[in-house]
Design a protein around this nucleic acid. Structure first.
Length: 505
RNA sequence: GCUCCGGUAGUAUAGCCCGGUCAAGUAUACCGGCCUUUCGAGCCGGUGACCCGGGUUCAAAUCCCGGCCGGAGCACCA
């Protein structure tokens, strides 16, 4: 019954059901709070995006709330432009957040908690060098500073804040458990001095919290119920919970999963920066990169990445590296009904058709969707891909799509002579795309993975295909995704030049 | 090196907590067919996996032990 009335409704419903994320543990409808915790120290990439999508979808699923919270407590690393890059990136993916804040707003609050910990004898000011402390932690033995009286720690803390102690001289450490199997529990640093202006609060502060105390406090005061993050943080759960327990704060539920990586594609800031410096990729938005700006230029749809995250991803610790093909398959399915079709002839060869009628033809911009048409005036000279001539001999018949059939008469180096056969479709005749003499020059950049399976750089990570596009290509808007028939889906990369980036077949 | 975590088809996953219904589901890739004025999309069918070895049990992908392989952490980064 329903199939007859509204079949599409049924299908939609079905696919939606199939692609649900597993339920969140201990989640109560209406009470879930998740968060996006970017560190604004580099450009947003697909890993941030997928993680963000997960947090967003779960908040939605439970009618909960989502925080955007910038983890910007290292003034030496964070930069203003990156805050906006993340906001823009999340928005591009359709991720909407309910609240926004920066950890750097809460320095005074962190100081209060620090005071409390010191007063309770749970934290101490330590003068050990990094090397000494690292050694002590390795050996599971505490240093002398650990035993300092509370009063002394209190006044030393004041000296840290006032500037009497300079950067590197001292840190505030948590009195943890030096014999814990979990190394992060061995008296971790809570605060350190950083003499560097902060992009938001300037030089107002010189003592900055480390990740663990900042995150522990923030997740609690933001009321975060579920922390969904990648598994490299798994060891911090115990520490952050411990810090909260000392401060009388509530703990969230942790859901951790291994990082999202894609085959042959670097995500680490350092590595990308190196590739840029070496001139191997152009910029942070290079289409071979998995930065959000990169995949945007690359023609991938945010919805495709969203669906990929839901359907192909698991909340497991297992290390996995995704094949781009899985994402392309989804992207292709989404693009197919909306991408206009155009003719692009790579490596063109001129064909002169004897006996061809002069025609004004209307070609549909899509084989099944009503996306419009374009008009073409055809004389007897056209261009077709050289590749399609391979193996053809005199007398072989070829169909020019939407036009007519030709039979090959003579093939020279850069010229083909053919005879007009007929306009009707003949079963079994190969069909090729073509352009007329009023073609436009088109360049298609074909990106591939940066690294090969053996770990070496892929020398062909960006190929350029030159060819002729039909005149109507000039109508394609910058950023518009189209399909060049029998070539592949491409996105226009420039508002002026007819430069395209190949998306996938 | 130490500590924790994990290993299901080519790839990504479901199942594992609460052993049997799993002769292992799905997606993608691949192969074949249908459809199609694209080598795209769609439809139908097919090939293909529980890391290895022991143990517990009537019964193990599921529980236990060992091995091997992989990942994460061992920062005054997050």
């Amino acid at each position: 019954m329903l199939e007859e009335i509204a079949p599409t409704l049924l299908v939609k419903h079905k696919t939606k059901e199939e692609k649900r994320l597993p339920p969140l543990p201990n989640a109560e409808f209406g009470k879930v709070v998740t968060r996006l915790p970017p560190e604004p120290s580099g450009y947003m990439h697909i890993g941030h995006a997928m993680s963000g999508i997960l947090n967003y979808i779960y908040a939605k699923m439970y009618d909960g709330k989502l925080w955007l919270r910038f983890e910007d407590t290292n003034p030496r690393k964070v930069k203003l432009e990156y805050y906006e890059n993340f906001r823009k990136g999340y928005k591009w993916f359709g991720i909407e957040w309910d609240y926004e804040k920066c950890n750097s707003e809460d320095l005074n609050l962190y100081y209060e908690y620090a005071n409390e910990l010191i007063r309770k004898g749970l934290a101490y000011v330590c003068f050990c060098s990094k090397e000494e402390m690292s050694k002590g932690r390795f050996m599971m033995v505490g240093c002398a500073h650990r035993e300092q009286p509370v009063q002394l720690n209190l006044s030393l803390w004041k000296e840290m804040l006032s500037g009497e102690l300079e950067e590197g001289a001292a840190v505030l450490r948590l009195k943890g458990d030096m014999t814990s199997k979990n190394t992060v529990m061995r008296d971790p640093t809570l605060f350190r001095i950083i003499e560097h202006p902060h992009p938001i609060v300037g030089d107002k502060y010189r003592v900055w919290p480390t990740y663990d105390i900042a995150a522990a406090v923030e997740d609690a005061i933001c009321g975060v119920t579920h922390v969904l993050r990648s598994s490299e943080f798994a060891l911090r759960d115990e520490l952050q919970n411990y810090i909260r327990s000392l401060l009388g704060l509530q703990n969230p539920v942790f859901v951790e999963y291994s990082r999202f990586e894609f085959k042959g594609t670097p995500l680490a800031k350092r590595e990308i920066r190196r590739l840029i410096e070496q001139g191997i990729v152009s910029r942070w938005d290079d289409p071979r990169l998995a930065t959000v700006d990169g995949i945007k230029r690359r023609g991938l749809l945010p919805e495709a990445i969203k669906e990929f995250t839901i359907s192909q991803t698991g909340l497991t610790y297992t290390k996995r590296v995704y094949a781009w093909e899985l994402l392309y398959a989804i992207n292709r399915r989404m693009l197919d009904p909306i991408a206009k079709r155009y003719f692009f002839v790579p490596d063109p060869i001129l064909v002169e058709v004897e006996g061809a009628p002069e025609l004004h033809v209307e070609l549909p911009l899509h084989p099944s969707e009503p996306l419009g048409k374009r008009l073409v005036h055809v004389g007897n000279k056209l261009y077709i891909p050289r590749r399609d001539l391979q193996g053809l001999k005199k007398g072989d018949v070829l169909r020019l799509k939407y036009l007519y059939n030709i039979s090959i008469k003579d093939v020279a180096n850069d010229f083909v002579n053919a005879n007009f056969v007929c306009r009707e479709v003949i079963e079994g005749v190969p069909i090729v795309q073509w352009v007329t003499e009023d073609y436009v020059n088109v360049r298609v950049f074909v990106p591939d993975v940066l690294y090969q399976d053996n770990g070496e750089l892929n020398p062909d990570s960006l190929k350029i295909v030159h060819g002729f596009g039909e005149k109507a290509c000039i109508e394609i808007k910058h950023g518009e995704r189209v399909q060049f028939e029998r070539f592949g889906f491409c996105i226009r990369d420039d508002a002026n030049a007819l430069d395209f980036i190949f998306i996938h077949t």
